[in-house]
């Protein structure tokens, strides 16, 4: 019995060390991914077929291939060309590129679902393209997709568990080490799972709240 308690304490200690890394990775990858998504989503409605095609290919490739494979590709593949970056940078780049593809899809859908009439009114009122995007199109698109964006951030957090394969000591890797050491899989993994669960569940609740607010503002459409 006492064994289990000490194991649990060990595990919790490691989770507390590793959780900031998880959050740091997730946040560091979220914003580049969002940026890629905005650029990609806008390019996806471009007049030029080649541009649209390139975006579609990017999205398709990342949606068809597993993240684990991609992070290996980056981590082992780049050094071959004398590009030497540490595991953390690798992880952030891999997460950003991979989730950037999903963000592109989300934003593309958000832009497509917008009321055309608002864009027309903006043109008729003399808004230039930049202001049209900045003041009218993007705010409305972003408001409509905030729940999906938060959902994507939950996916990013879950994918941080995979960066353990390139040696980053985030909580899954640490947890696994404790289990191998102490042979108490249930205690450790339950605590580990609970940690992820709490973080993700809170995000989910936050997303639902925002969705309610966004729906009330936009329901005029």
């Amino acid at each position: 019995m006492i064994d289990i308690i000490s194991v649990a304490r060990d595990a919790l200690g490691l989770i507390i060390t590793g959780l900031p890394i998880v959050l740091m990775l997730a946040v560091a990858a979220f914003f580049p991914a969002l940026f890629i998504g905005i650029v990609g989503g806008l390019l996806a409605s471009s007049r030029f077929r080649l541009v649209r095609l390139l975006v579609s290919v990017y999205v398709y490739v990342f949606r068809s291939t597993p993240f684990l494979m991609f992070i290996f590709l980056v981590y082992y593949g780049l050094p071959q060309y004398d590009i030497d970056i540490g595991p953390v940078t690798t992880a952030i780049i891999a997460l950003s590129l991979s989730h950037g593809a999903y963000m592109t899809e989300i934003i593309r859908g958000g832009l497509r679902g917008l009321d055309k009439g608002q864009g027309e009114a903006a043109v008729a009122l003399g808004f230039g393209l930049f202001h049209r995007l900045k003041d009218i199109t993007l705010p409305q698109a972003l408001m409509a997709i905030i729940p999906s964006l938060l959902g994507q951030s939950i996916l990013i957090i879950k994918d941080t568990s995979l960066v353990s394969v390139v040696g980053i000591s985030e909580i899954t890797r640490l947890g696994r080490e404790v289990v191998i050491r102490t042979n108490e899989p249930f205690v450790v993994f339950t605590l580990l799972a609970l940690t992820y669960f709490v973080v993700c569940f809170l995000l989910e609740l936050f997303a639902r709240q925002l969705e309610g607010r966004a729906r009330r503002v936009l329901s005029g459409q």
Binding site: A121, P139, Q140
Partner: peptide, 9 residues
């Protein structure tokens, strides 16, 4: 416009 097209946000 027929459908007003006010900026909802």
């Amino acid at each position: 416009f027929q459908r007003f097209n006010l900026f909802q946000h």
